[in-house]
Design a binder for these strands. Structure first.
Length: 223
DNA sequence: GTTAGGG
DNA sequence: CCCTAAC
């Protein structure tokens, strides 16, 4: 009674197992089958097909626009080549988050709130076949961890070392920290979060009611 | 179906 | 990034 069936997967619908992920460019197959409708942002075809197959090198991704130049010094290694194969089982294909994407994500979070990954994805990342809501949340987690969980000992020893150390602009870091603070996203530091029941706390009860009401807004009845 | 947490 | 549990 302690555990409730760990949702065993269907071995029959597991496609072809590991044979495909190392041979062909269809590791998941879930997101690859829905990108023929209206997507196709700017990548020709091979960029999203291989998705870091450690086979070919992708020189430039989607940064050839004319509205962003600050991202040039962000995530200098866009190749995802020789280095990825050394990892082994995990992280075979990693999409390098550009500064533009990070800013877009932060902006969406600040507008729609933390937790509305689907809304943000539909509104801001609708043109990206990759970057699922889970990816957005994951990136946000990493962003918060890297932006707020720092002590900044001494006076930044960032003389001329690689940009890989701190590629994020101070403005973005500030924004991420602020957002994480006002939303009290879990797993950050949790200084003194009182885990009391909403009924005991008037403030929290009010918040709960607001949340409920918000969820009830789009509750249209149909008979 | 989506979100939160862990690997 | 990938998988699982919970909502």
């Amino acid at each position: 009674m302690l555990l409730r069936q760990k949702r065993l997967r269907k071995p029959t619908q597991r496609y072809i197992d590991e044979s495909s992920r190392i041979s062909s460019a269809a590791p998941r197959g879930k997101r690859l089958k829905v990108q023929h409708d209206n997507e196709l942002p700017e990548v020709p075809s091979e960029t999203r097909s291989l998705r870091g197959s450690s086979k070919k090198v992708v020189p430039r991704l989607e940064l050839h626009s004319d509205d962003d130049l600050t991202a040039s010094d962000y995530e200098d290694d866009k190749k995802t080549t020789k280095r990825s194969k050394l990892i082994g089982d995990r992280r075979k294909h990693q999409r390098m988050w550009t500064l533009e994407e990070v800013v877009k994500l932060v902006d969406g979070i600040s507008q729609y709130g933390v937790g509305k990954w689907t809304a943000i994805k539909r509104l801001l990342f609708s043109s990206s076949t990759y970057r699922t809501p889970i990816d957005l949340r994951d990136k946000w987690r990493n962003l918060v961890k890297s932006s707020c969980g720092h002590k900044q000992k001494r006076k930044e020893v960032e003389h001329n070392l690689k940009q890989t150390a701190r590629p994020l602009p101070k403005t973005v870091r500030r924004r991420v920290c602020e957002l994480a603070t006002i939303h009290q996203y879990p797993k950050i530091n949790s200084p003194k979060i009182d885990h009391v029941t909403p009924a005991k706390h008037p403030a929290r009860a009010k918040v709960a009611q607001l949340s409920l009401r918000e969820k009830n807004v789009h509750r249209k009845n149909s008979t």
